[in-house]
Design a protein around this nucleic acid. Structure first.
Length: 249
DNA sequence: TACCAGGTCCTCG
DNA sequence: CGAGGACATGGT
């Protein structure tokens, strides 16, 4: 039986440092030959390089250093609920072009208009409301605990912990669908969000950087190898400690 | 064509 | 509590 601590080692050796949260770098100097240029062209076939450099999200690989960057993480955490990150990037791009990566502006903008701008991220009626609820809370509160964040409409445990960990550097391990799937297949008995979170927080070095990287590694592993329907057990870095390694082929 | 994607809220047993 | 449905777009 694997331990959560040993799994981290396998994943890190296989995928390396992830540098999460994938902060966009909007408004920051970037390389003209950025590897995200093709993604930008795909989403904006008639777009130009100048617009790409100024506005297209890319992965900075650093912790947030400003209130704007923290708010961008809050926005991303809401928008990525049950939604692929590539769709979220399109919405963040449009929000940025409209100067809306800003709690005060989100509070003021018409909710219908906001919904239209974030349409590619899906669930736009719900998410536009969620963004406004977050803008209200985080512009009003500069010091808060997890319980208060969980009271925001639209913020459940995963979103709350993502915000606390990645935007504010507080030590909460983030549990997502990938975490539940990977642990379940590996043979762990914990099922609920709280039980899984406790499992990690009791067995892994309790540092913010460890929590950030471990969660990011799990997402990478879930996307590239431990797929929902046909996991690639043949090239799985934790196969030797996974109870389900022989259940798929 | 279906299924999947870094969930959450609401309702009902 | 836990299960089941609604919410919506884009990629494969």
């Amino acid at each position: 039986m694997a331990s959560v601590k040993s799994i981290y080692g396998y994943l890190y050796d296989s995928y390396g440092t992830q540098g999460w949260w994938p902060l966009s770098g909007l408004g920051m100097p970037v390389n003209k030959d950025d590897k995200d240029w093709p993604n930008y062209l795909k989403a904006n076939p008639k777009g130009n390089k100048d617009d790409f450099i100024k506005n297209w999200p890319r992965h900075l690989g650093i912790a947030p250093k400003s209130w704007k960057q923290r708010f961008e993480i809050i926005v991303g955490a809401i928008l990525t609920q049950n939604t692929s990150w590539s769709n979220v990037e399109k919405a963040i791009y449009t929000l940025n072009k409209n100067k809306l990566i800003d709690a005060e502006k989100i509070k003021k903008v018409d909710q219908k208009k906001l919904g239209g701008l974030i349409m590619p991220a899906g669930y736009f009626n719900q998410k536009s409301r969620k963004l406004k609820e977050c803008a209200e809370f985080f512009s009003k509160n500069k010091d808060f605990d997890r319980e208060e964040v969980l009271k925001i409409w639209g913020v459940g445990p995963e979103t709350a912990d993502s915000i606390l960990l990645y935007a504010f550097g507080k030590p909460y391990f983030v549990v997502d669908a990938y975490t539940k799937r990977i642990l379940g297949r590996a043979g762990f008995k914990e099922k609920s969000y709280d039980d899984i979170q406790r499992l990690f927080m009791a067995n892994v070095d309790d540092s913010v950087d460890m929590y950030k990287e471990y969660h990011a590694l799990i997402v990478e592993h879930g996307k590239s190898v431990c797929l929902k329907s046909r996991p690639r057990c043949g090239s799985c870095p934790i196969a030797e400690v996974c109870k389900s390694r022989d259940s798929f082929k």
